[in-house]
Nucleic acid binder design. Structure first.
Length: 99
DNA sequence: CGGCTGGCGTCGT
DNA sequence: TACGACGCCAGCC
């Protein structure tokens, strides 16, 4: 199974209302420094909606990018109970999901 | 706090 | 088959 498949599968383990970082996700699939790669994979996400790529954020606390628009991503997270202000996640550590 | 560089698989040339 | 560019970052300076 290739990396991207693993990534999508791992991402399915992230429950609603929780978030994870690109770096953690990378490690979860066996990559030490593949944050950037994760981004590319998410960008080519072949299973939109099925794969909750909007629950993946940057380790800095910012929401990061989104293929369909950061605004949309922000709104989706907001609907799941994650408060965001100025593209910044308020309760980052609190809602952070560990694999 | 802003900017630059590092590290990695996939895809296109 | 081989090589370089790319992408929803992370971390150090």
């Amino acid at each position: 199974m290739n990396i991207e498949q693993k990534v999508y599968k791992k991402l399915l383990d992230v429950p609603k209302g929780k978030i994870t970082t690109y770096g953690d996700l990378a490690k979860a699939v066996g990559l030490k420094n593949g944050q950037r790669l994760i981004g590319k994979i998410m960008n080519k996400n072949p299973y939109p909606v099925l794969v909750p790529c909007h629950r993946v954020v940057m380790s800095t606390g910012k929401i990061g990018g989104y293929a369909y628009g950061e605004i949309v991503k922000m709104k989706m997270l907001s609907d799941e109970g994650i408060e965001i202000t100025n593209g910044k996640i308020e309760s980052f550590d609190k809602n952070l999901f560990k694999f």
